[in-house]
Design a protein around this nucleic acid. Structure first.
Length: 240
DNA sequence: AAGTATGCCAACCGCAGCGAT
DNA sequence: TATCGCTGCGGTTGGCATACT
């Protein structure tokens, strides 16, 4: 709905940013603040689309951005959060100060998938996490594809809450005497009582997106998703 | 040394959500 | 209620760098 024409507009620059463009963008945002991405390029005298400006700012120019050298702690956190959240890179990035969703996504795809693959390699029964490689560039005469393997990685989802943005965890929890059941027409999953009751039989139950997503779907906002994940994860650790 | 394969990451694409009208 | 416009997000691609043969 209402998709912007973006970079397809004739005359707009694409591709790598020059130092001059970076400076123009950074200066403009420093003076006027973030937002208004649509009109920003014109005001900042940039021949870029707003989307491109926003991306460049968010992933590269923004103050406090850490680049490279992802520590073991950060890596561990990424793996854990990915187990909980799936491919919700912005949420994961939110837990790693100075890291961007793009960087974490790239790091996951280039480093961690490989690591996890090799860790799983001795177990031939385990599903192989397929790294998407440059399909087009590295075309070889490929044999017929093997039967598809089911991969137990949480499905990337956009979480749309059944609650309005103005709903809060507290307000919902205060109604917990009577199990809260949202409008069933909006649900793509079986309704569960509010607050959710966690029944964990083992790691698979916790790490599989099938368990955690219904929980996420019941929260009122991303921040409460994350707060709840802290609680869930603590409970999970106690079970081990 | 040359050609090819792979790694890596910045940037783009297109969809979905949401507020405004 | 329907539509528009903006923004944010995740998936994907392009292209340079490096490793390998």
């Amino acid at each position: 709905m209402g998709r912007s024409p973006c970079c397809s507009k004739v005359g707009l620059r694409r591709g790598p940013w020059s130092t001059k463009e970076d400076t123009l963008l950074a200066n403009y945002i420093t003076q006027h603040g973030e937002g208004q991405w649509r009109s920003l390029p014109k005001k900042a005298d940039l021949m870029r689309c707003g989307k491109s400006c926003r991306l460049r700012w968010m992933n590269y120019l923004r103050p406090g951005i850490k680049r490279g050298n992802i520590s073991e702690d950060e890596e561990d956190l990424i793996v854990r959060l990915h187990g909980l959240l799936g491919n919700r890179w912005s949420l994961i990035a939110g837990r790693l100060p100075g890291r961007t969703d793009n960087e974490i996504k790239n790091y996951w795809n280039t480093h961690l998938l490989k690591k996890l693959n090799s860790a799983a390699a001795p177990h031939k029964d385990l599903p192989h996490l397929a790294t998407k490689q440059h399909k087009k560039k590295h075309k070889k005469p490929t044999p017929p594809p093997p039967p598809k393997t089911k991969v137990c990685v949480p499905k990337p989802v956009r979480v749309s809450s059944a609650f309005s943005r103005s709903s809060s965890y507290d307000s919902l929890a205060s109604n917990s005497d009577a199990a809260y059941v949202p409008d069933k027409e909006h649900l793509s999953f079986p309704p569960v009582p509010w607050p959710p009751i966690f029944e964990l039989d083992g790691p698979d139950d916790f790490l599989d997106g099938g368990f955690i997503l219904p929980v996420l779907n019941h929260s009122a906002s991303i921040s409460s998703d994350v707060n709840m994940l802290d609680q869930v994860y603590d409970e999970y650790l106690q079970l081990l």
